[in-house]
Simulated scan of single mutants.
Amino acid sequence: MGAWHELPLWDDDTWDEAAPAEVASAIARPEPATVESVVVAEVPTESVSPGPCAGPLGVFDLETTGIDVRSDRIVSAHVGVLDASGAVIDARTWLADPGVEIPAGATAVHGITTERARTEGRPAAEVVAEVTATLRDLFAAGIPVVAYNAPFDFSLLKYEGIRHGVAPIESPSPVIDPLVVDKTYDRYRRGKRTLEVVAAHYSVALEGAHDAAADAIAAGRVAQAIAARFDLDVSAHDLHTQQVAWARAQAESLTEYFVRIGRLDADVDGSWPIR
């Protein structure tokens, strides 16, 4: 289990107003789907819509060996692009050999075993370099990237970059984090805020949760659904700036909750979208 400052514990788990986060359940998954590798098409800058989620919209997700962004490793990754309707324009999914054993608990979440990663996965350094370069290209084109609980994925990618000699993206922007936006616009809704729960709330289909591609695409469509429901009309860059403050305020609220229940050692890092 990670330290309190590393909450949320998994890349789509968080807390609600009544209770702290719980570790993702170790649910056995069916045979993992084949990992495909499709080059992300270049999207012309002039085609970027002015709205925050109208499209083209980048999506990003990692599946990993665990919950510690500093020491755990990438097992699979997905970067894609959605159009204004939520349809996939182009995407790429990577399977990596993390170079370490994948714990049984992590395998129970995403379905990828150490044996499969070693047999089918590419060297971690190559995967980290390509994921980083693909995201960097999207940001350079001005395309916002959706990541659910963004500090987990971007921070873990950063530390993987440092580990493998790949220059990390120090300040990813613009980023859209449906977890932060949802908690801001619907703060008092009870219950968990996992991607599965939030996707269902916004009537977004999510089949094969904890698959990097499925999670990334669902997160992008959730972001679009939130923007439509609450009529968000700010630019992606303005929304990015707002989320920095919102994430900090949410972390402060969580810290206050922990203090109220006697967890005086709680130290929730409100840095966003990367730590």
Rank of each mutant, 00 (worst) to 15 (best):
G2Q: 09
G2R: 00
W4Y: 06
H5G: 00
E6I: 03
D13Q: 14
D13K: 11
D16M: 04
S25G: 12
A26S: 13
T34N: 07
T34C: 10
V39A: 15
P52H: 04
C53D: 12
G55M: 07
G55A: 14
P56K: 12
G58F: 05
V59Y: 03
V59E: 02
F60Q: 07
D61H: 15
T64W: 02
V69L: 01
V69C: 01
S71P: 00
I74T: 03
G80P: 09
V81A: 01
G86N: 08
A87W: 00
I89D: 04
A91F: 08
R92Q: 13
A96K: 00
P98W: 04
P98E: 06
E101V: 15
I102E: 05
G105Q: 11
A106C: 10
H110C: 08
I112T: 14
A117L: 06
P123Y: 07
E130I: 07
V131F: 01
A133C: 10
R136Y: 12
L138T: 02
A147T: 04
A150W: 03
F152H: 09
I162C: 02
P168W: 13
P168V: 14
E170L: 13
E170H: 14
E170S: 14
S173I: 01
V175G: 03
I176M: 09
I176S: 07
V181C: 02
Y185L: 14
Y188P: 07
G191A: 08
T194C: 08
L195N: 01
V198W: 02
A200Y: 02
Y202M: 07
Y202E: 02
A205I: 03
E207D: 11
E207L: 09
G208Q: 03
G208I: 05
A209C: 14
H210A: 09
A213H: 04
A219P: 06
A219F: 00
G220R: 01
V222I: 01
Q224A: 04
A227S: 09
A228T: 06
A228I: 11
L232T: 01
D233C: 00
H237L: 05
D238M: 09
L239K: 02
L239P: 04
L239F: 01
R248D: 13
E252A: 15
E252D: 15
I261C: 01
R263W: 02
R263L: 09
D265P: 00
